[in-house]
Simulated scan of single mutants.
Amino acid sequence: MEFIVYLAGEIHTDWREQLKKETAKRNLPFTFVGPMERHDLSDDIGEKIIGEQPGPVYKDEAASSINNLRTSLLMNKADLVIALFGEKYKQWNTAMDASTAITLNKPLILIRPEQLHHPLKELSNKANVTVENIQQALDVLSYVVEA
């Protein structure tokens, strides 16, 4: 059985590639989808499709509607959501995606370092599983499909 996993979280590090590579090494039956990882395209997609906007707020609104559509379609198809909260970047999109997964009743694995325990305690409490690193999330995935 093949599972679709939506990978929510910051797009500035290679955490998705690490997870995908290790999943392939373990021969686990997971296919991964997620947000647009090309930051410039994500920011510019509204103007690229519907044309130049009169200012930065309008540009952001145009891009957000398209990015939200992408997230909605892919997350609705997903069997599981993994949301990574990193230490370096602002995590608003991660919080929104994790909350959306909970609202959609999608199983959720939350990855967050120990130092983010307090600010994420309510969200963590609503997740199915909370771990502190990618390796632990991989171990959960392995266990899920263990014969």
Rank of each mutant, 00 (worst) to 15 (best):
K59T: 10
M36Y: 11
D44E: 12
G51F: 08
T94C: 03
L141Y: 08
P107D: 04
A127C: 12
T130M: 07
F32R: 01
P107Q: 12
A62L: 01
L28Q: 11
E132P: 02
L120H: 03
Q135V: 14
A127N: 10
L138V: 10
I111G: 06
P56N: 06
I49C: 02
L123E: 03
R38C: 11
R112A: 00
P54G: 09
V129R: 04
S72V: 02
K77P: 02
L69F: 02
G86M: 11
N93C: 10
T94M: 05
V129P: 09
A137D: 09
Q115I: 00
T103C: 12
G51L: 03
Q53N: 07
T94E: 05
Q135R: 13
S99V: 00
Q53L: 13
D97L: 04
L141T: 01
R70V: 08
L138T: 04
L110M: 04
L73C: 14
Q136C: 04
S124H: 05
L138G: 00
L73V: 15
M75A: 01
A127K: 10
V131A: 04
K25L: 15
R38A: 05
L116C: 00
E47T: 08
D60S: 15
R70S: 01
S65K: 14
S65N: 13
A127T: 06
A101L: 02
V81H: 04
W92T: 08
I109S: 07
K106N: 08
R38N: 13
E47L: 01
L74T: 01
P56F: 06
T71R: 08
E146C: 14
V81C: 03
A83C: 00
L69W: 10
I134T: 08
P113A: 08
L84Y: 00
A95Q: 05
A137W: 00
R112V: 04
K90R: 13
E52C: 10
R38I: 15
V33E: 10
M96I: 09
V57H: 06
P29V: 00
A127S: 09
E52H: 12
E146I: 13
L120G: 07
L110Y: 01
D60E: 15
N27W: 07
T94N: 08
Y143I: 08
L41W: 08
Q53W: 07
L41V: 13
N76P: 01
D139V: 02
Q115E: 01
A63T: 00
N67Q: 09
I50N: 08
N67C: 14
L74F: 10
V33Q: 09
T103I: 11
K90V: 06
E37Q: 09
T71A: 01
L138A: 05
E47P: 05
K25S: 14
G46S: 12
H39P: 02
P56T: 14
D43Y: 06
L74D: 13
E122T: 12
